[in-house]
């Protein structure tokens, strides 16, 4: 067989070992460790104010205060420590909201796409109606009702974004359902539920993984946006969005207060989407 491959080269489709998978997983891993160990590794107390040390630049800039690696904000709080603590909220929202959204949306999508008929009719109409709500207003309204807090944000994300999963997974399940291997599972005597879980789900899984990681990125952004408009967690919890919001006010005097949380946010969201693409290739036996 080795010789056969060398001669006609049809099976030469091989992917690079996935540098982006490792880079993105590396960054997210680092962030997870930082979040878990925040109280021990953060150099300062993220809430400790020291008005004498307000707006200190990062250490490599003239006039920096030793020990405050990324500088301080206008209240003299350590930017690095606040970013590390902020990772806790960001990752919690990403993981919990992403997973719940994924489970609800993908399940509904799978059922609608595979079972078709009235199940599809009901779920599809629900999706259509749901998507007619303007999402930003919807989420602000929701949090206004639920009151700010971690769980309010998570619920808002789930309630708004499950349709994203449901629509894509439904279409994918429909396409897979038309394949002959599904017919052959029926010929073999497999029931509907079994076919859905054994035959369809593994083939829809890569799509779900990509959506899930994208959703985690989106969740981080949504949390930041809500913090930015002061609708998120209480102010004594450092969040990236809150930091960006505060940094905006003093960007001309202390750019670092705005820029470092922004970079962190950017890298995190990018890593989530790249992780998904990388994992999809890993999952695919044809490309592996």
């Amino acid at each position: 067989m080795a010789e056969a491959k060398a001669i006609d080269g049809r099976s030469m489709v091989r992917r690079r070992a996935g540098l982006r998978l490792w880079l993105s997983a590396g960054w997210l891993g680092l962030l997870c460790i930082a979040a878990l160990l925040a109280p021990w590794i953060a150099p300062k107390d993220p809430l400790a104010q020291d008005l004498f040390l307000g707006r200190m630049p990062p250490v490599w800039v003239m006039g920096a205060e030793p020990g405050y690696w990324l500088g301080t904000d206008s209240l003299g709080r350590d930017v690095l420590s606040r970013i590390i603590h902020g990772a806790r909220i960001a990752l919690m929202v990403a993981l919990i909201a992403g997973t719940i959204t994924c489970v609800i949306g993908a399940t509904l999508g799978l059922l609608a796409g595979f079972l078709r008929g009235w199940v599809d009719l009901v779920i599809s109409r629900l999706i259509d109606i749901w998507m007619a709500f303007p999402p930003v207003l919807f989420s602000i309204l929701l949090i206004a009702v639920l009151g700010p807090g971690l769980w309010s944000i998570i619920i808002a994300i789930v309630v708004i974004d499950w349709t994203r999963f449901a629509r894509v997974v439904r279409a994918e399940a429909m396409a897979q359902g038309a394949m002959d291997y599904v017919a052959s599972a029926r010929v073999a005597g497999r029931g509907r539920l079994g076919t859905m879980l054994r035959e369809i789900l593994p083939n829809v899984l890569p799509t779900i993984v990509v959506l899930l990681t994208l959703e985690m990125g989106i969740a981080v952004i949504v949390e930041a946006i809500l913090s930015f408009v002061n609708l998120s967690i209480s102010t004594d919890q450092p969040t990236w969005g809150g930091m960006i919001s505060e940094g905006r006010a003093s960007v001309h005097q202390a750019w670092w207060v705005l820029v470092f949380p922004l970079i962190t946010l950017f890298l995190t969201v990018l890593s989530f989407s790249q992780l998904g693409e990388g994992l999809k290739d890993r999952f695919d036996p044809v490309l592996r």
Partner: peptide
């Protein structure tokens, strides 16, 4: 459900072997 026990006795081979074998 009533068909299922009979299914063992009537089998099918499909036109496109790529799509009739689950790629995963």
């Amino acid at each position: 459900p009533a068909l299922r026990p009979l299914r063992r006795r009537m089998q099918m081979i499909f036109q496109d072997p790529m799509s009739s074998l689950n790629p995963r």
